[in-house]
């Protein structure tokens, strides 16, 4: 998607060209974090404001469910953008906010699921189970949420220390969760898939970068130890 590409370009330029320090560089990381926390609550606050001002349209339950769903997706993508941001800007400070953003993705996902279980189905467990079993888009959404649960549970420092290398391995579950979440959206839409395709494209870009980096890392390793056929290695270098 074009906006993202230009964003990446801008970030790249910043790494090489000295630019005027943005205003937030003068704020302490702690203040920044508090500010970001408040900003992350804006989508939720908006729903309350709209709710009290008669602004949710003729089908408020659908409006709220959709809004919480797309914000869950957005927060997942923002979280997945942190590592690329860090690499392109060469600044490790981005990582400070990743956990909070990830937890907000979980938070909005939980609210989204709650609106489905409560407002949409009104805890009719028979129908809900049938939905999960029969409807691929519900199956995907539910699976995506379940994949996020262990990530949220192990998001504290103690778990990071206790799980050691396995923590990073475990948290790779965010990749399948994001893919399932986008498919969940794609399958729900009746015909006009523009919106889900935008999310899918951004996700492909973010995941594609990781595949690319993984491949780059692999090629020198293969050259050093001659485990991989040379032809394959050179093809990788050219690509």
């Amino acid at each position: 998607m074009r906006p993202v590409e230009t964003g990446v370009m801008a970030a790249k330029d910043m790494a090489f060209r000295p630019v005027a320090a943005p205003f937030w560089s003068r704020l302490s990381p702690r203040t920044l974090k508090v500010l970001l926390f408040v900003v992350c609550l804006v989508p939720l606050a908006r729903l309350f404001v709209l709710g009290f001002s008669h602004g949710l349209g003729a089908n408020p339950i659908e409006f709220v469910t959709r809004s919480l769903g797309t914000w869950t997706l957005s927060f997942l993508l923002i979280t997945l953008a942190i590592t690329p941001l860090r690499r392109f800007t060469g600044q490790g400070q981005w990582l400070r906010y990743r956990r909070m953003l990830g937890l907000f993705a979980f938070f909005y996902g939980m609210l989204h699921l709650t609106t489905y279980l409560w407002l949409d189905q009104f805890f009719d467990w028979g129908d809900i189970l049938k939905d999960i079993y029969k409807r691929p888009f519900i199956t995907f959404g539910m699976t995506a949420f379940l994949l996020l649960v262990p990530l949220a549970v192990t998001s504290n420092d103690r778990s990071v220390r206790a799980l050691k290398r396995n923590w990073a391995r475990l948290h790779k579950l965010v990749y399948p969760a994001a893919i399932l979440a986008v498919l969940h959206y794609y399958w729900l839409v009746k015909l006009d898939v523009t919106q889900p395709v935008i999310y899918a494209s951004v996700l492909s870009l973010l995941l594609g970068l990781r595949v690319w980096w993984w491949w780059q890392k692999r090629v020198p390793a293969a050259k050093a130890g001659n485990a991989v056929a040379p032809a394959l290695a050179s093809r990788g270098r050219q690509g």
Partner: peptide, 9 residues
């Protein structure tokens, strides 16, 4: 094929 028609809002 993608959703139930048993109920409506």
């Amino acid at each position: 094929p993608r959703w139930s028609q048993a109920r409506e809002r």
